[in-house]
Design a protein around this nucleic acid. Structure first.
Length: 263
DNA sequence: ATCTATTCCTGGCTGC
DNA sequence: TGCAGCCAGGAATAGA
């Protein structure tokens, strides 16, 4: 499931291939990918030049000479450069520089043109790397809910998903059900440092490949080998040796060490 | 204003 | 071996 490190890896592999190129033709193979208006979207994309490509939270934002192409990969989405469209290809851009395939088995992902930056991109919270620890602590402590759902809230902080939230909370020794306003300033700053650390390490490893994720060149990441809690239910905690627990928090599978992460 | 539950999707896995 | 039923979960939406 692509989160900030995976999307960042895709952007880095894709940017030199597509920025400066032109879209010759756009085709949607599934209307869902276009939000049920495939013909109109395809017509808007055709002929556009790609001026820039950047990441915003978990979105890939292609800045065009007219409007934007915003892509969200959700669970199983992939953006593949110069790949042959497979059975799960949902959209294909023919560029003068090559072919860009949007592949998505489960069809949660979106590949949308809009005249202005979409509101869900506009509303994104700050990027973890651009936030000072003190600002992060202030924002966190101003909220009354549980920390895990808050970290998953894209309006609070842009880019974290289920894997990296569990990993960051473990590193900061914070229970996923801890109440945000009751986390000490010191520990909130430690949490920010843990978020930045785990995201940086994951980017350096090319992201985590659990089942579907690959970058734009089709390469898997390797950070899944360094997960300390995610997907390790029943296995010994790397810090204390007691078994990792899995609970459900906000309808999400949540992995933590009850001994190291006290509530 | 804030938080919680539901919905969308389908390949792969579990269990009978 | 076959198949029904469940599971994964990000984010929009509806409801409390």
């Amino acid at each position: 499931m692509p989160e900030l490190p995976e999307v960042e890896t895709i952007v880095r592999t894709l940017r030199p291939r597509v920025v400066g190129s032109r879209i010759l033709e756009a085709r949607y193979l599934s209307p869902l990918a276009a939000g049920h208006q495939p013909e109109w979207m395809a017509a808007q994309l055709a002929g556009r030049a790609i001026v820039d490509l950047r990441r915003a939270g978990k979105f890939l934002v292609f800045e065009l000479d007219q409007g934007f192409l915003s892509v969200h990969l959700r669970m199983t989405g992939k953006l593949l450069f110069d790949a042959v469209p497979g059975p799960f290809a949902r959209a294909v851009l023919s560029l003068d520089a090559g072919t860009l395939v949007f592949d998505d088995v489960r069809q949660f992902g979106r590949f949308l043109w809009s005249p202005a930056l979409p509101s869900n991109v506009e509303r994104l919270g700050p990027e973890p790397f651009e936030l000072q620890p003190s600002e992060f602590a202030l924002r966190l402590r101003a909220r009354r809910g549980h920390v895990k759902p808050l970290l998953l809230n894209q309006q609070f902080l842009g880019g974290l998903g289920n894997i990296y939230v569990d990993e960051a909370l473990f590193r900061a020794a914070i229970h996923p059900l801890a109440v945000a306003s009751r986390v000490s300033t010191r520990r909130a700053q430690l949490l920010h440092a843990s978020v930045v650390e785990v995201l940086s390490e994951a980017i350096a490893a090319g992201g985590s490949s659990i089942s579907d994720y690959v970058d734009a060149e089709g390469r898997a990441g390797s950070f899944q080998r360094f997960h300390r809690v995610y997907g390790r239910e029943g296995e010994p905690c790397l810090q204390c040796g007691k078994p990792i627990h899995r609970i459900v928090v906000g309808q999400r599978g949540t992995h933590f060490c009850p001994a190291c992460q006290k509530r």
